[in-house]
């Protein structure tokens, strides 16, 4: 079985991103970039499935500029066998990314696509479900447990009220939630070895898709800040404020 793992390049999650001066976009100048944390979890799961003998190959794919090489090298150092970079300088939205991944899926024919449930930049949470629909294959989103069977995969999903388990026929799309696993760190020898693993580059134009920004960002601003309140020095003082000032408890 082959597993395809899409990798998104995003800001490091510790960085607080701010709007640019003209409020037209976020300011990512000099911001440290990384593999989207949910994609890292997806990759880790794919590698574990391979290590357990249930997959032969893990292929990482990313859409973006030449800079995405960096994140694909990380994926290779973590254990992906090879990588594909779809090169473009234009902004791609989740619908576009799903269309691009359809092309890669058709070329690679993986049994399983394991991907993050959302990017921590746009917070869309769309691409996996869109890919599933476009390919007419089933999806299991927000996975916290993945069990591979011969022709299907059992996925425990994090839903609002608790957990739900689905059995989906392969090929399928699984999107990952936080508790699925704890990703490993790349070892130095593996980082060195990753330099020799292949990254195929494909220009977006070669896929014959028309990419259009159907949704335009017209303004980016900071959220309204809450005013800092006061410190109270005892439980009694706190209860007094909550009862008599905020009037939120009796």
């Amino acid at each position: 079985m082959k597993i395809l793992v899409p990798i998104k390049r995003v800001n490091d999650y510790n960085v607080k991103v701010r709007p640019n001066q003209s409020n037209t976009d976020v300011d990512l100048t000099n911001v440290k970039m990384a593999v989207n944390p949910f994609c890292e979890i997806a990759l880790e799961e794919a590698i574990r499935i391979k290590e357990a003998g249930n997959a032969e190959e893990v292929v990482a794919v990313s859409v973006g500029s030449e800079k995405n090489q960096e994140q694909l090298r990380t994926a290779l150092a973590l254990g992906a066998d090879r990588a594909i970079l779809i090169k473009t300088e234009v902004e791609v939205q989740p619908l576009d990314v799903a269309k691009i991944l359809v092309k890669i899926f058709e070329k690679e024919n993986p049994k399983l696509v394991l991907m993050g449930k959302q990017g921590i930049d746009g917070d869309h949470n769309q691409t996996g479900q869109m890919l599933g629909a476009m390919l007419s294959i089933p999806q299991a989103t927000f996975a916290s447990k993945v069990e591979i069977n011969a022709d299907s995969v059992n996925v425990t999903r994090e839903i609002d009220g608790g957990l739900e388990t689905l059995s989906v026929e392969l090929p399928a799309i699984v999107t990952t939630d936080l508790r699925l696993n704890e990703p490993r760190y790349a070892s130095l020898p593996n980082i060195m070895k990753a330099k020799r693993k292949p990254i195929d580059e494909i220009n977006l134009e070669e896929l014959g898709l028309s990419i259009e920004q159907k949704v335009k960002t017209v303004k980016v601003e900071s959220p309204s800040e809450r005013e800092e309140g006061i410190k109270v020095d005892s439980v009694d003082a706190l209860l007094d404020k909550l009862r008599n000032e905020a009037k939120v408890i009796e």
């Binding site: 960002t217 980016v220 900071s222």
Partner: peptide, 15 residues
């Protein structure tokens, strides 16, 4: 909200 609510985006749909 985008970036975990660090920014608020105003978006315009052309659809």
């Amino acid at each position: 909200p985008i970036y975990a609510g660090a920014c608020i985006a105003t978006v315009e749909s052309q659809q």
